[in-house]
Simulated scan of single mutants.
Amino acid sequence: MKSNNSLTPSYFQFTVFADYGPLRYLFFSLSLLIYVTIISANLVIVLSVCLETSLHQPMYIFICSLCLNSLYGSTGFFPRFLMDLLSDTHFISRLLCFIQMYITNTCLEQELTLLTVMAYDRFVAICQPLHYHSKMTFRTVLLLLILAVLYPVWAFGYFFYQASSLPLCGNQLHKIFCTTVSIINLSCVDTTVISISSQFSSSPFFVLYTYLCILLVCRRSSSEFRGKALQTCLPHIVTVGNYCILPFCDFSLSLYIVDEVNTLVIVLSLEFWIIPPIINPLVYGLNPPQIRGVIFGYRRAGKMVHST
């Protein structure tokens, strides 16, 4: 039972960071390398789609948006995380904590809504190919992108308001960054309804349902059709699989006492901020021949310019 003596802390403390001594510089260097890799890999995809007119198609525009979202979320997470790796104390002001919480949570929700839009795009392309160009017009794509970006802003705004107005009975966060759940756990009042609804909002149910429909259509089709469908859906399936690992990591963290497994908490908490932002550009940059051709085409052009 939580205490009724509520308070509004002006700062929060991350409790799972350990004193790694000189190893902190190694962890900092590795994390900085990962951050630079994420920025570089996603920027390559974004610039390729933006600069190459042949890639101005719905699927590639959605891929570009997914990479932009990775850049947005990584920028909200890594600078503070890098600072904490080198710091002896791990305090964050209430304002910066809520800003980080807003960025990371909206990034997570936008990842889901973009994956949902991409699943719908693949559903139309595979199950209704004759109507694809009439359904996925520029206006439709623009509307879907606006909804994919604004819905998380609106939906999380509700949870953000509730979390920011909760009476808190502590200031210690058992995380490596500020999250809605970690703030809610400090509340002096019952937050069961908020916790359940926040978890439900991050469920990839519609994405999984869409791919189930595609699978059912493929079962009734020829082997050649199934092969082409699998080839075009494989990058999306890998991306959705990466996203589904996140709830597993959160569930795993809830099974342990965080003060005793600091390293495990950090590793599991880093999953979403390392694996999808790196895997997505690799999958979408190497698998679709159109994007791969543009990327390697620019490289060859660059070499020819330098050689002359």
Rank of each mutant, 00 (worst) to 15 (best):
T116Y: 06
Y151I: 14
Q110E: 13
R139I: 08
H133I: 04
L108P: 02
H133C: 04
T140L: 04
I126H: 05
L112P: 08
A148R: 02
I126Q: 07
V141D: 03
K135P: 01
T104C: 10
C107G: 00
P152Q: 13
L142C: 13
P129V: 11
L142T: 14
R122L: 05
L114I: 09
I146R: 14
L147Y: 10
Q110C: 12
M101V: 07
L115P: 03
H133G: 03
M118P: 00
V124D: 03
N105E: 14
L144E: 01
M101A: 12
D121F: 01
E111T: 12
R122Y: 02
H131E: 12
F138P: 03
L115R: 00
L145T: 11
K135V: 00
I103K: 12
Y132S: 02
A148C: 10
R139W: 00
E111Q: 09
I146G: 03
H131F: 14
L130A: 10
L144D: 00
C107L: 04
K135I: 01
T140I: 04
I103N: 11
L144A: 01
V117Y: 00
A119K: 01
V117I: 10
I126M: 07
D121E: 14
P152N: 13
D121W: 01
H133S: 12
Q110A: 07
C107V: 03
T106Y: 08
C107K: 07
I99F: 08
E111D: 06
A125W: 02
I146M: 14
P152L: 14
Q110N: 12
L115H: 02
D121L: 02
V124R: 02
C107Y: 15
H131T: 08
K135W: 01
T113K: 08
F138H: 08
H131K: 11
M101S: 08
Q128C: 07
E111G: 12
L147T: 15
L115D: 03
L150M: 15
F123R: 06
Q100A: 12
I103P: 02
Q110V: 05
L150P: 09
Y120L: 02
T106N: 11
Y102V: 06
M136Q: 04
I146H: 09
L145Y: 09
S134D: 11
I99M: 08
T116G: 04
L150F: 15
I103S: 09
F138D: 12
L114G: 06
L130W: 09
T140S: 14
L108W: 13
A125S: 13
P129N: 08
S134L: 07
L142H: 11
H131P: 00
R139N: 13
Q128H: 11
T116E: 03
T106S: 05
M118S: 03
L143W: 05
T113D: 03
L145I: 13
F98E: 11
T140G: 05
Y132K: 04
L147H: 06
L143T: 15
L114C: 08
L112N: 05
L108I: 05
L144T: 00
I126P: 05
F98A: 06
P152S: 12
C127W: 00
I103A: 11
V149H: 15
Q110R: 14
E111A: 11
V149D: 10
Y151F: 15
L147W: 06
R139Q: 13
T113E: 06
T104L: 14
V124N: 03
V141F: 03
V149W: 15
R122T: 01
A119F: 05
V141Q: 02
